[in-house]
Design a protein around this nucleic acid. Structure first.
Lengths: 225, 225
DNA sequence: TGATTGTCTTTCGTCTACAGTCCACGGCGC
DNA sequence: GCGCCGTGGACTGTAGACGAAAGACAATCA
């Protein structure tokens, strides 16, 4: 038997770095979302390739994916430019985000089981703890995980994928403005959990819609300095 | 002078076909949506390249774009396979489609001007004419243009882009089943136009939701043979 | 006879090279 | 001084080539 001669649990599994293009994609997305690459900047393939230690080809493929997802604009025969967000576009993204999140809340209310609800409450508790500790980064992270969990409970993969993309871009647009709604946001999360527990689809939809609209208003209030 | 040696009117060279990858993308998408390439089929890069008369590179880029949009599955170190739709996924797509279309109807009701409404009525008239003439292809085309016009009147580019992708895939999933709801569909369109004219957002939302739900049911009824 | 292993083919992933295109800069004429 | 044209450089678009991983098949050994 083979298993006798092998250390059973500790097979290190041969970490495969995966396709280069994916790593380049994530690296570039990280650079864009962190504003290391500013909007409007010209991205030169050979430059990025040299900087990342790879050839131009994976860089090209990553850029094209970023293009289809709206992170960069690919002007023909000229190259890639980091997308420049406009007020109008940001507003449209927020509209769509509200829509998708509200539907997710409705589906979550329809489908969630007790385990899922328990998970939501656990995330909520952690989020409140982070807020109490003035851990802004932690609170933001828990907020994202909370919404992701709602999405997961909704059980609609298509919806989840669209929402993930929209969410990421919304966050990018509004990261320059500091955001911390603190306690109020988590109070609304608690109310949402209650609605989900009661399987009240309409109330869950309404609460999530109001919740994201609150966030939208607070974003707008801060972005118009 | 150079011009004397040239055939004066026949300089065909001005038409720029645009990047090759885009043409390959559209060609492949056409082949997939028309079922010339069946779901599950293994797409070999060099084969496609040879068939289309280009190099592998544009084919690769087109395949990756098709991958991010959900038309093909790209298995690492193995290649591209035409995505195989499942019942569950189709249902999720229909849910999202209903959501996006209903929101578009709401926004159209809020924003549409008289010119837009006139355009809708014109499209509706043409659609009814096609139905009366038993022109199924024409009716389907007019239906698509009607919904696209609603989307345009909504004035939300982000929403429109998402809806376009979802719509295309929904149509792909359900093209094997013959679809013709005929007159009833256009009656509902008329009702929707009335709601938009009255600027009644709630009624427009409800009508569009019911409309796409009807379509969904008729799809389901036919697909479960 | 069955499983295992070695090899072999196919295909992808990546790199390098070349041609085409666009932009900027400088010279020239007006 | 101002505008237009030609030229140079830089970058992208495309093609072709090489190395590597995965699957298939046959030969070998228990």
């Amino acid at each position: 038997m083979l298993s006798t001669g092998l250390p059973q649990g500790a097979v290190p599994k041969l970490e495969r770095p995966g396709p280069l293009r994916d790593r380049v994609y994530e690296a570039l997305l990280e650079l864009i979302t962190t504003r290391a690459l500013q909007p409007g900047r010209h991205l030169v393939e050979s430059e990025l390739a040299g900087h990342l230690g790879v050839s131009r080809q994976p860089v090209r493929e990553a850029l094209q994916r970023l293009n289809t997802e709206g992170w960069v604009d690919l002007r023909p025969a000229q190259g890639a430019f980091v997308h420049e967000p406009t007020e109008e576009e940001a507003d449209q993204l927020l509209t769509v985000r509200t829509l998708l999140e509200a539907e997710a809340a409705r589906l979550a209310a329809a489908n969630a089981d007790s385990a899922g609800i328990a998970a939501l409450e656990a995330l909520c508790a952690e989020g409140e703890k982070a807020v109490d500790a003035d851990d802004v980064d932690g609170a933001v992270a828990m907020n994202a995980r909370f919404h992701a969990k709602i999405m997961e409970l909704a059980g609609n993969a298509v919806l989840a994928e669209l929402a993930a993309q929209v969410d990421r871009r919304v966050r990018w647009y509004y990261t320059p403005v500091a955001r911390r709604r603190g306690h109020q946001s988590w109070i609304e999360h608690r109310e949402l959990i209650a609605a989900v527990t009661d399987r009240d689809e309409q109330r869950a939809t309404r609460l999530m819609r109001e919740h994201t609209e609150h966030t939208r208003r607070s974003y707008h209030a801060r972005s118009r300095v």
